[in-house]
Nucleic acid binder design. Structure first.
Lengths: 260, 260
DNA sequence: AAGTGGTCTAGACCACGAA
DNA sequence: TCGTGGTCTAGACCACTTA
């Protein structure tokens, strides 16, 4: 039996163009994923209830079971649904679906919370960094790095001090963009086409020293939450961020999944 | 053409039994996944080089392409490999592969780092918890909860105070297991068959008060890292953990992936 | 017994990268 | 052009849940 069949990609293109306004063809499973995700987020499918069965979804979308299952698997990975053998596919609460553990900048996080965010005292220099920075980046310690220093404000109150070390070859001419640096990650993405894809962050806490206390206008001895973050693009470390933030104004959230 | 074919599951069982010592059948893709993962971790496939192509892996394992791809997809999701269309599948550095963001107890983390861990002053009570605990658990605030209080020691030095609130119906008779509570998560899994699958943790930092300072044998005013963790099993919150740990002895690591 | 999701196969065409 | 991974189909059997 030789498989004479219509080209599925033409079909998918056609359906896609009327569903979503995208000129190029997206994978079919992605279309299914998007539609189902929207319905869950709009609560057309309600929390706790069952999604249509896989054979039903096949008919609805006119695709094969594998394609349906690929879409469902994506939704399950992102915590929207949970398949139960012999029973069905349960819709979980989209509001509690985790959007944590994304690489977000301090600026982005604070804006999300409704603050008006700005940076002052921005300093950009080329210099030798502390040695541990080089080991984090897997570099020899004889080259200059770009150092970006900022004092961060939320609603005109100082809340954090941030120092970023970046590989100079990735951000040529960054010193001329001093006034554009509010969200550094956004700058890297838009001006330098650097796609940040992951980061490892280590969180600790320290007591504010006299300098920090003065800059942040807090009593000496106040507790600071400090984070050291190594940022990766295409599986290579491209920079280290060090942020010290006033602890009672900020809480760091993490989503943990799975047991060892 | 009706598909007469040998039952693939019998084959898979047979192969599995000689490969891995497991009495029941694991999925075929899981076997492929395990073998490839081991080879990557043992550096039989070296970092930066290409994995055998998908057709080659099909032949090696005697399975279909879909099965190979499912195994590869799992490895890719966990950061072991990265597929590149038209080129091949690159092996990434297994040492930097993230094993972070799993739900691990303080005990487990410290043992991993080589410490000798113990708990003292263990107290187990049934009582009304602070109201925010009930809202975290999505409960009415009129029922008693189990409260487990412990002072945690690493190499006989006090390093943390932990308070856990648990739903009483899940842990009947826990007060008789007082001396078994070192890793609470381990106890839940082994004695009560509770499978913890996720948690949301909020991290902040505070200054040690007089009581904490005395218990942890540190100067008053020292910085503590505090974590409030809501633990989930089968998508239901089952407990809240509150841990305050001496900040200069502990660092909290997080893996962040993807951009909003 | 019937219906659900879980696993698996064989075979096809497409899009991208390198030669 | 050729080989790689990316997408897709049709059809099969298994394991679990519910009735």
């Amino acid at each position: 039996m030789n498989a004479t069949k219509p080209n599925p990609h033409n079909i998918s293109n056609y359906i896609l163009k009327e569903g979503i306004n995208i000129s190029k063809s997206l994978p079919l499973y992605y279309k299914v994923y998007n539609i189902l995700r929207n319905k869950i987020e709009e609560e057309e499918y309600e929390k706790g209830e069952l999604l249509p069965t896989e054979p039903e979804l096949q008919k609805q979308f006119g695709v094969s079971r594998v394609t349906v299952r690929k879409a469902l698997e994506m939704l399950a990975n992102e915590g929207f649904i949970m398949a139960k053998q012999g029973k069905g596919t349960v819709v979980l609460d989209p509001k509690t679906t985790q959007k944590l553990n994304l690489v977000t900048s301090l600026t982005e996080t604070l804006i999300e919370k409704g603050y008006d965010v700005s940076s002052k005292n921005v300093q950009i220099e080329y210099l030798k960094a502390p040695s541990y920075i080089y080991s984090e980046l897997g570099l020899e310690s004889n080259i200059d790095l770009v150092r970006v220093y900022r004092i961060r404000y939320a609603n005109d109150n100082p809340i954090a001090i941030t120092i970023n070390y970046l590989l100079p070859e990735l951000v040529p001419g960054i010193e001329q963009k001093k006034n554009k640096i509010n969200s550094l990650y956004h700058l890297l993405e838009t001006e330098y086409c650097i796609k940040i894809d992951s980061a490892i962050e280590k969180i600790s806490s320290v007591i504010a020293g006299v300098t920090e206390a003065e800059i942040l206008q807090i009593p000496y001895g106040t507790s600071l939450l400090t984070s050291k973050r190594v940022v990766y693009s295409e599986n290579r470390p491209i920079g280290v961020d060090i942020t010290s933030i006033i602890a009672n104004k900020y809480e760091y959230s993490v989503y943990l999944k799975g047991r060892p």
